[in-house]
């Protein structure tokens, strides 16, 4: 549990950091909260020769609403989101998710950007932010570019980021009066990665139909998944019990879990069904003004 040796850089600005990444290419790794990368290094499963620590760079930690989006700086810690008033009052999906990531110690260090960049299918932000319809901003030598989260997860532990790009911001559509959301996670014990988790974000029309809906699935496939067909079941429909049940069953068929210590695949698939139904009911209640 002792890592190999490495060289450590602590740049003060984003361009400096990008320059270091350009210089060292594949041998370099960005260090954010360190709560995925450092465990891998201690197990000697990762052995980057150069670490570029983002923590001294100002202006990467924020939560604010502007121009129709909620914008979250990549270095914002899980714990910052958990305790943010903006999040608590308007973004129940994110508030739920922040609360169930790991334990308080990890939440005080781990960052949203690091979680997405790590692209672990078991990461909670992937599923939650897919449900929220998020995009990310990547900053590299040629400036920034926006990537929809739907195109971001390329495979297990791989993203659309270039080696010299840094994820700098996450954006999601600003919440509205009739929007609601929920994130439900089933875990073996507190602090564990999910057996399965489901995030739901939705916007109800004036007639109570689902105007917008996003469903994200955690740890039931090679990447964080979006349950597009289940969303389709709901879109434009009133979320009554029968529709919710159908959407939940559809989400289950869209999941692609594997057998492991958390349980057999058929169990996890059924948990997607159970959790999707429960999360939808909770989100609809919230959209209608419930707690």
């Amino acid at each position: 549990m002792i890592p190999g040796s490495f060289e450590y850089f602590s740049p003060q600005t984003l361009p400096e950091a990008v320059t270091l990444l350009q210089r060292y290419g594949e041998d370099a790794k960005v260090l954010a909260g360190g709560h995925s990368l450092i465990p891998l290094m201690k197990l000697r499963l990762a052995a980057p020769r150069y670490l570029v620590d983002l923590s001294r760079i100002d202006g990467l930690t924020y939560i604010r609403e502007s121009e129709g989006f909620l914008r979250v700086g990549a270095l914002t810690r899980h714990g910052d989101i958990e305790t943010s008033d903006v999040i608590r009052s308007g973004y129940p999906l994110l508030a739920d998710a922040a609360r169930v990531i790991a334990d308080p110690l990890v939440r005080n260090m781990g960052t949203v950007g690091g979680s997405l960049a790590h692209a672990d299918p078991a990461g909670d932000w992937g599923a939650a932010l897919l449900a929220a319809g998020a995009h990310v901003v990547a900053t590299g030598p040629r400036g920034g570019r926006t990537i929809p989260l739907d195109e971001f997860f390329v495979g297990t532990f791989t993203t659309a980021l270039q080696p010299d790009e840094i994820l700098t911001e996450i954006g999601i559509p600003q919440s509205q009066k009739n929007s609601g959301g929920a994130y439900l996670k089933l875990e073996r014990k507190v602090g564990d990665f999910a057996i399965a988790a489901v995030g739901v974000g939705l916007l109800l029309s004036s007639t109570g139909a689902c105007e917008q809906v996003g469903i994200g699935l955690c740890n039931v496939g090679p990447t964080s998944l979006r349950a597009g067909q289940a969303e389709q079941v709901l879109r434009g429909k009133k979320p009554d019990d029968a529709t919710i049940a159908r959407a939940a069953e559809t989400a289950a068929t869209e999941s692609d879990p594997a057998d492991d210590l958390r349980g057999p695949a058929d169990y996890k698939r059924d948990m997607v069904r159970v959790l999707t139904a429960r999360a939808l009911r909770l989100a609809v209640g919230r959209a209608k003004g419930g707690a």
Binding site: L186, R188, I195, R262, G263, P264, Y267, D270, V274
Partner: peptide, 17 residues
């Protein structure tokens, strides 16, 4: 007694949510 073991026997005995 993990959740999946309980789920499995409930299933076998016809109980689901």
């Amino acid at each position: 007694i993990t959740p999946w073991k309980v789920w499995k026997v409930l299933r076998q005995n016809g109980v689901t949510e």
